[in-house]
Simulated assay, not measured.
Amino acid sequence: MAAVFDLTLDCADAQLLATFWKSALGYVDEPPPPPFATREEWLAQFDLPEDDSADDGAWLCDPDGVGPRLSILKVPEPKTAKNRLHIDIRVPGHGGPEERWERIRVEAERLVRAGASVRETVDGHHLVMADPEGNEFCVAAAAAV
């Protein structure tokens, strides 16, 4: 059996990135683990510094339970280099290369409106983009089945 894994993004503004990644991936806020009713309740069990708050983190999940969970956590240091691991957003659909490229372009435009930026275009194949805090990700067509 394969291991279950989560992805974690370090950031300066967890709520800003949570809003972006919910839009980008179609994810939702993950409920707090039982028996806790709120994230604040859950966080209260940890010995966190006084200036930490529930807004310093966000926990997202795929509403269908298929994709990995995404934790977004505030850290004090800024991003200083290219990500060693990044997310690839795969745009679904069928068709020829031109149709797939058009779907990629349309999705990239939607993500730019949500706060992303385009870093590099590999014509006909994928776009390298960055979220509002500069974390790199790619937009490409889903593999044909």
Rank of each mutant, 00 (worst) to 15 (best):
K82D: 14
A12C: 06
E102I: 03
R84K: 12
A141F: 03
G26P: 04
A24C: 10
W42M: 15
L9K: 02
K79M: 07
D88L: 09
P63V: 07
V118S: 09
K22W: 00
A143G: 08
E99N: 06
V139R: 10
A54H: 02
V66Y: 09
A130Y: 02
V139S: 08
A24N: 08
D51T: 12
E120C: 02
C61T: 08
V139N: 07
D55Y: 09
V128L: 15
T80D: 10
F20M: 10
A140T: 14
P32A: 01
K22F: 06
P132G: 02
A12H: 13
P49E: 04
H126E: 13
R105L: 09
R113N: 10
G115D: 04
M129N: 05
L48F: 10
E102H: 15
V139I: 13
F20I: 09
V145M: 12
I104A: 04
L25K: 05
V139Y: 04
T121G: 08
A144P: 00
L17R: 10
G57D: 04
A18D: 05
D52F: 15
W101D: 06
P78C: 02
L70Q: 01
V91M: 05
L73I: 15
G93V: 13
I104Q: 04
G93A: 12
V28R: 11
S53V: 06
C61V: 07
D51W: 11
A24R: 05
D131Q: 06
S117H: 08
E107K: 15
G96M: 00
D29I: 03
Y27Q: 06
S23N: 15
P63S: 03
P49Q: 02
M1I: 10
L17M: 07
D13I: 01
R69H: 12
L60A: 08
A37I: 00
S23H: 15
V75W: 09
E30R: 14
I87S: 03
P32S: 03
A37E: 10
V28Q: 12
P92R: 08
G26I: 05
E102G: 12
K22V: 00
G57M: 15
L7M: 11
D29R: 02
P76G: 09
N135E: 04
E41W: 08
H126Q: 13
L9S: 02
G95N: 11
D56A: 07
V122S: 11
V128A: 11
I89D: 07
P35A: 01
A12V: 10
P132H: 00
D52V: 14
Q15Y: 02
F5E: 00
V139P: 06
P76F: 05
V139T: 04
P34T: 05
P63R: 07
K74N: 01
A58D: 03
K22T: 06
W21M: 06
K79V: 04
R84L: 10
T38C: 01
E41I: 00
S71A: 15
